[in-house]
């Protein structure tokens, strides 16, 4: 029972939990920028939490359903409309054959997740349906959705009832200013003590270039580097290093000016120093940052990072119980 794409929105892509295991070959994990929200959308329609859904960024697509379906929209507040009637986010909805799902303009956040009972059933590549457009993997023939596409939907018997909703306290989104917790990393020694302090004190703003590969931030002071002898094979800029692997969430600062947090479609390595890494529990929040949103980086240690990861798992568990 395909879903027809009447309007693609802006770079709306099919995403699941991604394709781990190939980063050493330069193929990133991809998958939902805000995995938490995709998991919850899937819970609300009775899918396996890792089923493929749609990730809409800033604006929603327009989709015509050819059969009755159970759907849910989570993530940023992008109000869904069924045949023009506004519905609730984070809530199980029923849509009938012939009806159209469209969206109002986004009120906060940056990405919405649309789950359909049965999941989007496009062919997997390297074990995932996630769209990695630059590498032409997953999605629809390796690309984001286009007008006129027909999205195949898997079959499932779901017993989720209409109106099942996630309590507001369990809907996670960035605060204002957004706070991203950072574990200082391997190349922290490259910048001066003062530059390091300032990095955490200043308020940054999301740049409009921010995308699935990386989130760029502007507005803070340029970093000052510690003097050094240029290492063998490193570029001449003080922000260059001998090529090295990058971790997801790592923060590179080319030229010492604008930090870039590498995200789900990240490059796997290169010649820029990385001053630290955004902790895994906060990666989903980045996916909900609009351009120009004020952001603070908050220094934490490994213990805090691990307990934050645990808290996030507990929160997901609470949602599983709340919607079961």
């Amino acid at each position: 029972m395909p879903v027809k794409v009447k309007n693609k929105g802006l770079a709306t892509s099919i995403q699941d939990m991604g394709r781990p295991g190939y980063f050493h070959l330069g193929i990133p994990i991809s998958g939902a920028m805000d995995r938490f929200s995709l998991r919850v959308a899937n819970m609300l329609v009775g899918n396996d939490e890792s089923a493929a859904g749609l990730e809409a960024v800033f604006m929603g697509p327009e989709l015509e359903f050819t059969e009755d379906a159970i759907i849910a929209v989570t993530g940023g507040e992008l109000p869904p409309k069924i045949d023009g009637e506004v519905k609730e986010t984070w809530t199980t909805m029923r849509i009938k054959a012939g009806q159209t799902l469209s969206f109002d303009y986004i009120r906060h956040g940056a990405r919405a997740y649309i789950a359909i009972a049965g999941g989007i059933d496009t062919p997997q590549s390297l074990g995932s349906r996630s769209t990695y457009a630059i590498g032409a993997l997953g999605g629809i023939d390796g690309r984001v959705i286009e007008n006129g596409d027909e999205l195949p939907i898997g079959s499932i018997s779901t017993n989720m009832s209409e109106g099942t909703s996630v309590p507001k306290v369990l809907r996670r989104g960035p605060g204002s200013p957004a706070e991203l917790r950072v574990l200082p990393g391997l190349y922290w020694h490259r910048i001066t003590h003062e530059a390091g302090e300032r990095f955490f004190q200043e308020t940054w703003k999301v740049a409009s270039e921010a995308d699935r590969m990386g989130y760029r931030f502007k507005g803070g002071s340029p970093l000052e580097f510690v003097e050094r002898k240029q290492p063998f094979s490193a570029g001449s800029d003080p922000s260059n290093i001998t090529d090295a692997p990058y971790a997801y969430g790592s923060i590179q600062v080319p030229g010492g000016t604008e930090p870039i947090v590498l995200h789900r479609d990240a490059v796997s390595g290169g010649g820029f120093f990385t001053l630290g890494t955004v902790i895994s529990a906060d990666m989903d929040l980045i996916g909900q940052l609009q351009p120009n949103i004020e952001t603070k980086f908050v220094k934490v240690n490994m213990q805090t990072a691990l307990s934050a990861r645990k808290e996030r798992a507990v929160m997901l568990d609470s949602i599983r119980q709340a919607v079961a």
Binding site: L10, F58, M59, Y105, I106, A110, S208, Q290, P291, N292
Partner: peptide, 8 residues
């Protein structure tokens, strides 16, 4: 006429 998108 409203913008659906953030940006410049």
């Amino acid at each position: 006429i409203r913008s659906q998108l953030p940006g410049v």
